[in-house]
Nucleic acid binder design. Sequence first.
DNA 1: CACTTTTTTAGAATCATTATAAACTGCAAA
DNA 2: TTTGCAGTTTATAATGATTCTAAAAAAGTG
Lengths: 132, 132
Amino acid sequence: MKYIEKLRNSGLRPTKQRLQICEVLFNRDKTFHFTINELEQRIKKHTDNKISLATIYNTIHAFEKKGYLKQIPINSNQTYFDTNVTDHHHFYDLKDEKLIDLEKSDVGPINILRKIDGKKIKSVEVLVKLED
Amino acid sequence: MKYIEKLRNSGLRPTKQRLQICEVLFNRDKTFHFTINELEQRIKKHTDNKISLATIYNTIHAFEKKGYLKQIPINSNQTYFDTNVTDHHHFYDLKDEKLIDLEKSDVGPINILRKIDGKKIKSVEVLVKLED
DNA sequence: CACTTTTTTAGAATCATTATAAACTGCAAA
DNA sequence: TTTGCAGTTTATAATGATTCTAAAAAAGTG
């Protein structure tokens, strides 16, 4: 199993549940944008045994803390996550409520000219809302 | 009362509650970033009579629909609103959980090079997260 | 004033997320 | 391999923001 090492290296025990969630999250070509609810549905389809909702939350938070996932800032009642943890941005299709990755090169350089004393910039995220 | 016309012009009856909320929201020098919870506290201090929480939600949504307020996309369990409805961006101080306006001129032009068929860009929002 | 429509309200309902505490599991040391 | 224990999983309860409901109150109109 290719995810065992990954988990072990980051101090997470490679449990059956975590490995199955890894399969759903990372064993794919494109990056994956999801809410916990959507992920739960996919896990249900993909695996035979049930994984508790609490475990899904636990795992996603653990993965996020380890840097395997990113939260996407967006106004929604549900939290969106992204398997693409590189520095990039998003389109958000307001009608379909779907996210699309926007590579840094698609946006061009962003120069934050203002500085705040005693603070440093951790990230710069761009959300481009789309309508028909 | 200076807000009566504003409300009437947008088809909202200028009720006592709405006028009081207008005072708290708009009668200030700087732009105001808030959650419903914070707003409720301020209303409690500012006004003698109690305004129901449901009314606060109703009013904020009505004002947002009329374009007097904007939601700010951010990862938080609570929704943030902004009285600054001009096209601008935000710093978000992760430690203090506070927002700071970033004028467009502080960010410079943003050029979205990629296009999505059949969709047009409604807004471009930049969130700059700050750490110590 | 009489009547209609909008608004307010308290409280219930909903829904995402987090907490709890007991059972289970991976894993390292004996 | 067995034992012991920290780390995990789990069902369920709890929380907290937000929305819904339906009845009362207020605003607008003639």
